[in-house]
Simulated assay, not measured.
Amino acid sequence: MKHALLIAPAAAVLLLAACGDQTNPPTEPAAPVTEAPMVNPTAPIQPGEGPESFVGTWAAQEAWCENTSATTDQVPIRISAERFEGYENRCDITAIEQAGDSYDASLSCEAEGMTSQETVNMRVIGDRLTLTWADRGNEAVQLVRCGAGPGQN
């Protein structure tokens, strides 16, 4: 037992000595540790250029972008990273997954007191958003971005 007590401190000293002198003096602090950004080489994004591509205000027709009255269904919808908000309906995005150059979103919706679960694929090319509703026979709806300039949504 006596030898074991002597071996442990000696082993620690040898391990520290093997590391060499890598301690920075107080006047020369070590450089901050940075992590490389995560890259997914199997998922090249181009048309929408990332999930933020679908965030904004969208309308079926450009003229609808000006409609803010809740008295007509010809109003734009607002999409954030968390929800869809439109005329008399709201959907929370409960899950989202990249699908090539688009995104599949699971939605939990409420409209006129009724709730439903839906799945939609969102694909942005330029200022156009195509929503393809899986639960509606793959019905596709094309929308135009309102206020197409950056930061205008």
Score class of each variant (00 low, 15 high):
residue 122 M to F: 14
residue 108 S to Y: 06
residue 93 I to L: 03
residue 103 Y to M: 05
residue 115 T to N: 10
residue 72 T to Y: 10
residue 99 A to N: 08
residue 100 G to P: 05
residue 119 T to C: 00
residue 87 Y to V: 06
residue 88 E to Q: 13
residue 84 F to L: 13
residue 93 I to D: 00
residue 115 T to A: 15
residue 109 C to T: 05
residue 122 M to V: 11
residue 106 S to C: 05
residue 107 L to F: 04
residue 95 A to W: 01
residue 106 S to I: 07
residue 119 T to F: 01
residue 108 S to N: 12
residue 99 A to C: 12
residue 72 T to P: 02
residue 100 G to S: 12
residue 75 V to M: 14
residue 92 D to M: 02
residue 90 R to L: 15
residue 80 S to I: 10
residue 95 A to K: 13
residue 77 I to W: 01
residue 110 E to L: 15
residue 106 S to M: 09
residue 85 E to W: 09
residue 105 A to G: 03
residue 106 S to F: 00
residue 91 C to A: 11
residue 117 Q to K: 14
residue 109 C to Q: 04
residue 86 G to S: 00
residue 117 Q to H: 12
residue 116 S to N: 06
residue 98 Q to H: 09
residue 100 G to A: 14
residue 118 E to M: 08
residue 82 E to T: 09
residue 74 Q to N: 10
residue 125 I to L: 07
residue 80 S to E: 09
residue 103 Y to L: 14
residue 69 S to T: 10
residue 117 Q to A: 10
residue 68 T to E: 11
residue 77 I to R: 01
residue 106 S to G: 08
residue 64 W to C: 05
residue 120 V to H: 06
residue 89 N to L: 07
residue 85 E to D: 13
residue 88 E to V: 10
residue 83 R to M: 05
residue 124 V to P: 01
residue 94 T to I: 11
residue 107 L to D: 00
residue 116 S to D: 01
residue 66 E to R: 12
residue 111 A to W: 07
residue 86 G to V: 03
residue 114 M to P: 00
residue 105 A to S: 05
residue 84 F to C: 04
residue 70 A to K: 09
residue 107 L to Q: 00
